[in-house]
Nucleic acid binder design. Sequence first.
DNA 1: CATGCTCAAATCCTATAGGGATGCATCTGC
DNA 2: GCAGATGCATCCCTATAGGATTTGAGCATG
Lengths: 244, 244
Amino acid sequence: MQKASNGPRAGSRSDDQTGDRRGGRTVNRQVLADHVYEELLASLMDGRLEPGAAVSIDGTARELDVSPTPVREALARLEHTGMVRRVALKGYRVAPVFTREDFAELMEARLAIEPVNARLACSRLTPERLAELEEAVADLKSAPRGPSFADYKDYLEADERFHQLIAKQTGNQFMVAAYAALGGQVQRFRLFGGVGITDAENAIAEHQSVLDALSTGDPEKAEAAMADHVQKVRARAIADAPAD
Amino acid sequence: MQKASNGPRAGSRSDDQTGDRRGGRTVNRQVLADHVYEELLASLMDGRLEPGAAVSIDGTARELDVSPTPVREALARLEHTGMVRRVALKGYRVAPVFTREDFAELMEARLAIEPVNARLACSRLTPERLAELEEAVADLKSAPRGPSFADYKDYLEADERFHQLIAKQTGNQFMVAAYAALGGQVQRFRLFGGVGITDAENAIAEHQSVLDALSTGDPEKAEAAMADHVQKVRARAIADAPAD
DNA sequence: CATGCTCAAATCCTATAGGGATGCATCTGC
DNA sequence: GCAGATGCATCCCTATAGGATTTGAGCATG
């Protein structure tokens, strides 16, 4: 909306993050489509884009002041994550809200994958990664948990980060990919699943339990702690869920 | 290569599969990017595109006689499957061959996911799906298994179909997504993992065992049979693997 | 011979143009 | 007043143009 069509700036992209230099050599070249992808992902992950909302290609392009081409590319990647759906010739839409059944399926899948991740992560845990996990739990404890949306965004972000770190700690690229296929949905559920932040105290305790189990180095314990956590999340969500 | 640049046909796409009509109303509208995606996926799945090969955007566009735009979109989707990798400003490349470690990780992930799929599928098995599974196993048995590449393509296709059907039979969209995150890699490993078709007899017997276990309706048996199958595949592959 | 430079072709990346379809507001006829 | 037709705006989709970057060959130099 700001600076809408202020003039053609074709090809003059040497001042944004493209040619980012650090220490004298280019480190992480990035193209516009990557930027758009991250922007859209952030909007989806923190709830700015609500389920069911249309994501217009041209509209997004105008908003970000780019051409539709990189937006198409970014959305094509996002489609494969399940966070947006596409209908040919009709465009993209944020995936609809979770039904009760969707939620049950998601929890079933988490229960199949996340305890295994905890077990594998435990047997390969490095001190550095353990520190990162401790930091995530600390952030979880210290994050504000007010009633408004923005108030517990940090809490949700720390929650997602904790689980994602465990997936990465497995050192298994395919388990990371499998969790990633769920991760976005998990986060979306946290935002729009109906269950609020009321279970924070319990959830924090369970995360601490998982972390403790990982610290002991006993893979079986870690697996059990994670399974326990996921099951309790499911139980609380069912209890809190609205009538429909 | 054939019919290279025979002339501009801009906007005349009312004769290909776009406006496909059946019974009077349009049923499944398809855009060019979908066609390109399927074309590339087929090339990857049956080995026409070998690991490490460059996949040029412009080149593919010329070959399929379309513009680069839909090719970009198709490749963006494929990137998220892990079958092609992208480097900014350098283009796409078919994912490299499996190392021993990659193979171990893939089998670890399959062992975490596929037995669960078998268990879930078993408890929700419908006669129609069971028939499809039986057909896949029958195709597995009847498929030619010659020494040349094209000779056992059908065999590999039936193998992939069997596992994918079980994933779908879970009725859990997230388990399907998780398997899909692996599925492409599994197929690629079958093609280029070094292990040939020597284990066909054993593998067929194991697939039959999985099918039998599913037929009994005992989820525990199905899970065990699938775990046994994956573990034996791993064992055979390790035994057959070349020195490096 | 090995190494560095120059240049040209190929390729990637983004913007723009325009065809076709859809949706919505407006208008007309009953 | 209301149903259907019409026009306009919006959007998706593909092609094309052109700038920016990479790459590899050819050539010069130590």
